[in-house]
């Protein structure tokens, strides 16, 4: 780890000032930042510890939910309101990492997790995300865990979060603070595709701090989070699907589909959702939606299997969600 200075500001205002120092980064749970600092994929000169800022509350707001950025994964998944009304979110969070990490990782930090691409973690190899312009080792290398949607020639990494996939299906918004600004960003806009600047995972500006995630009122219908992985637990997704399906028993009223493990950002399958609205519930309709969800997907060799896997997992998650028929 490269040397850095450390401070723990007393309040939000002080934190937003402190982050103005050269090479400064916010530290919250640290479960990813510290991990990356140890391999020098991240080399902050100054850490601004925001883990004790009073941003750890979950409260109801306009029929939805306001989740403080410092709410831990454990607290989020354990919240009775989340369990009752946003089970897809609770499930997604519980499917991520380990209990120890969830006890520490925060909501804001989870959104800012960086990719698990092997090459990103290994400074001995080229990586455009870690060292812009050095090249992408994964493109012609071992890319079994990499993106099939929205990738670029510069980067085929995927976003590793489970939580963000559920939030994508729930149309969450990210609340962001800077010394002289306050904004809300739709989660669909928060993470970006790699393009030619894969070093930027999100649209966050310098010095901006996530203070909360806002959930709109829970969508009608059954909610399912399905994570496909090599191990039964403690493993990143090969593919994951957050599905919300509302039916009248025979017809699909509405559906929401978000995918993880397939792109540089949590991926919303809007066309597949539109295709399902109002059609009779059938295995064929769900399978077709799965196919639509991966339309235009491109494999890079080792990850070709993700295309049919994603399609099938979408269909299976939709079927499970439709079965729940939650009003």
């Amino acid at each position: 780890m490269r040397a850095f200075t450390y401070e723990r500001p007393v309040d939000l205002a002080a934190a937003l000032v402190a982050i103005g120092q050269p090479g400064a980064r916010f530290l919250a749970g640290g479960t990813n930042l510290l991990d990356l600092m140890k391999v020098e994929a991240e080399t902050p000169q100054h850490l601004v510890d925001v883990s004790r800022l009073p941003l750890d509350q979950i409260s109801e707001e306009n029929g939805g939910l306001r989740i403080g950025a410092m709410v831990t994964n454990t607290a989020l998944a354990g919240d009775s309101h989340v369990r009752e009304h946003y089970p897809v979110l609770a499930r997604a969070v519980l499917n991520g990492a380990s209990a120890q990490l969830r006890n520490q990782a925060t909501t804001g930090g989870n959104l800012l997790q960086r990719t698990r691409c092997y090459y990103f973690y290994d400074p001995s190899t080229p990586c455009n995300k870690r060292a812009p312009g050095s090249g992408c080792s994964a493109l012609q290398g071992y890319n079994r865990i990499h993106a099939i949607l929205g990738a670029s020639d510069a980067c085929i990494a995927v976003h590793p979060s489970d939580m963000a996939v559920a939030m994508m299906a729930l149309d969450a918004e990210v609340e962001v603070e800077a010394p002289h600004s306050h904004r809300r960003i739709k989660i669909a806009d928060f993470h970006r595709l790699p393009g030619n600047t894969p070093q930027n995972d999100t649209i966050l500006g310098a010095g901006e701090l996530i203070t909360a995630v806002i959930l709109p009122p829970p969508p009608p219908g059954g909610q399912v989070y399905r994570k496909v992985r090599d191990r039964a637990s403690y493993d990143f997704a090969l593919v994951s699907v957050a599905a919300v399906v509302e039916t009248d028993g025979e017809r699909i009223r509405s559906a929401r589909i978000a995918l993880g493990g397939v792109a540089h950002k949590p991926w919303r399958a809007l066309e597949a959702e539109r295709q399902l609205a109002g059609v009779p519930l059938s295995d064929d309709a769900l399978a077709a939606a799965g196919e639509t969800a991966v339309k235009g997907a491109q494999g890079h060799g080792h990850n070709d299997f993700k295309i049919p896997l994603a399609a099938r997992t979408v269909a299976s998650a939709l079927a499970e969600a439709a079965k729940q028929r939650k009003a």
Binding site: R116, Y118, D122, Y142, D230, R231, A232, Y234, D235, F236
Partner: peptide, 14 residues
Amino acid sequence: VNHDLAGYHVPVHA
């Protein structure tokens, strides 16, 4: 390539 315990999978409790 996958030279750590996140990338090299050994069985876990589950």
